[in-house]
């Protein structure tokens, strides 16, 4: 079985990083995974996205017909990827930037998160994508929380050990928000 998620927003919001955290966590959980960034011209326009496909067998197609989940951090990403989420799928919206905008669909779960505020609570308001990853993992459980924590320590710790705590804080804030969203 394969599951796919797209992380999309502005360059600098940590979307490619966060996708890699998920990919590394999947490996730690013994899963197969495929990470592919959009490297096309849209990247030069300031938007960035990556797709992560997780599965229990070697990943087939690197392109998917529809996503099981989407993390959207800005309006262009919402417009582009909102319609591409499978019915019954999950859309995590950064309401700090998107305000009241939504994907306008009744056939998907829409989770609105004030990612900037939640990230600030974790210690660094820039870590919006890590917040969203927390909510994603809380809601879908494709990988374990422990593996995400370990992957964050590895990846953030490699270059900037001083931000590891903030990353873990942002992830915890996202997890909490996701758990609440799940129970609601």
């Amino acid at each position: 079985m394969e599951r796919s998620v797209v992380f999309a927003g502005f360059g600098g919001q940590g979307l490619l990083f966060t996708g890699q955290v998920l990919a590394r966590a999947a490996i730690k959980d013994g899963l197969e995974v495929f990470w592919i960034p959009s490297y096309g011209p849209e990247m030069r326009g300031g938007t960035a996205s990556c797709t992560v496909i997780v599965g229990d067998e070697p990943i087939g197609s690197p392109v998917v017909d529809e996503f099981d989940a989407a993390v959207v951090m800005n309006l262009p990403s919402l417009r582009k990827f909102g319609p591409l989420v499978a019915p019954g799928g999950l859309v995590i919206l950064n309401s700090s930037l998107l305000g009241d905008h939504g994907c306008g669909r009744s056939d998907v779960d829409e989770m609105r998160l004030p990612c900037t505020e939640l990230a600030a609570r974790g210690g660094d308001d820039k870590l919006v994508s890590v917040v969203a990853l927390g909510a994603l993992v809380a809601h879908l459980g494709w990988v374990t929380r422990e593996s995400i924590g370990a992957a964050l320590r590895e990846m953030a710790g490699r270059k900037r050990p001083e931000v590891v705590d903030a990353d873990l804080g942002a992830f915890a804030a996202g997890l909490e928000a996701g758990d609440v969203g799940r129970a609601a």
Binding site: G30, V54, G55, D56, D109, R182, A183
Partner: peptide, 28 residues
């Protein structure tokens, strides 16, 4: 929001297989 069923992937693997996979593979 409606509760969502957790997706059970990776459950078919034994602990030993998981451990071997964790040790041997890196993301590149």
């Amino acid at each position: 929001m409606a509760p969502r069923q957790e997706i059970e992937i990776g459950l078919r693997r034994t602990e030993a297989e998981l451990e071997a996979g964790r040790r041997a593979r890196v993301l590149m």
